[in-house]
């Protein structure tokens, strides 16, 4: 079975964000990029599935040359091949999904992993959009997955608990923390990854369905009052919560 994993290349979550000169995107200066944290769970699950059921794992990313770093990391973890779908311009999630769907079709992958969310725009939709474009089943925010022949049983995290979902291949799974413990790339894996080539092609054209018109910093929150350093401050706190904040 061919297994695809879609990965995004995002600013490190600890990065300080500055707005770029266009006023619509971030200033990339001094920003460190990493594999999207949730995509590491997606890669791990794909590798585990391959180890159990056989098959081949291809990682796919839409973006520019910088994304190769993330693809290389997935290869070092153990993916068999990598495809970069190139576009120098910013795409919206729909444009990314369209490019991914096209490639997944070409690859003939019936099991596709995504992260539940990219930690840049925090959309959490690309997996579901791609599934719909491919007419595949999908389960999002998955913390437990079982594949038995054609049958898929997945647990997804929801408010207050978990839902157990039954479906079948072909399927898109979006990975949530808790699904597994991503492995570290071994030295051997890193060496092997250096020898693998990343296939590059143009991403299929797509219209911008949505468009950022402005990006700005949120209004800074005024640091509040420190009311004291021991329990004598408690009665004032409760008074403020009652009278000023009116929350109790």
């Amino acid at each position: 079975m061919k297994i695809a994993v879609c990965v995004s290349h995002v600013p490190d979550t600890a990065t300080k964000i500055n707005i770029g000169s266009d006023g619509k995107t971030i200033d990339p200066n001094g920003v460190t990029y990493i594999v999207n944290p949730y995509d590491e769970f997606a890669i791990e699950e794909a590798l585990k599935t391959k180890e159990k059921l056989g098959g081949e794992v291809v990682v796919i990313s839409v973006g520019n040359d910088a994304n190769k770093e993330t693809l290389r990391k997935a290869l070092a973890m153990g993916a068999d091949s990598a495809v970069l779908l190139k576009d120098e311009n910013q795409r919206d999630s729909f444009g990314i999904a369209k490019a991914l769907a096209e490639e997944i079709k070409l690859q003939n992958a019936e099991l596709v992993f995504f992260g539940k969310q990219s930690v840049d725009y925090d959309n959490s939709i690309t997996g579901q959009l791609t599934a719909e474009l491919l007419n595949y089943n999908s389960v999002s925010v998955v913390v437990n997955l079982n594949i038995d022949g054609n049958k898929i049983t997945a647990e997804r995290e929801i408010e207050g608990g978990k839902e157990v979902v039954e479906t079948s291949l072909p399927v898109v799974i979006t990975a949530q923390k808790g699904l597994n413990e991503p492995r570290y790339a071994s030295l051997k894996g890193i060496m092997a990854a250096k020898k693998k080539t990343i296939e590059e092609k143009e991403a299929v054209a797509a219209n911008l369905f949505v468009e950022v018109v402005e990006m700005k910093k949120p209004a800074p929150k005024q640091a509040g009052k420190i009311l004291g350093s021991d329990s004598s401050a408690v009665s004032e706190l409760v008074k403020l919560l009652r009278e000023e904040a009116k929350v109790i």
């Binding site: 619509k24 725009y121 911008l208 949505v210 950022v212 018109v213 990006m215 700005k216 910093k217 949120p218």
Partner: peptide, 9 residues
């Protein structure tokens, strides 16, 4: 860390 204003085309 940032806010965007977005429009749908």
């Amino acid at each position: 860390k940032a806010l965007t204003n977005v429009k749908v085309n």
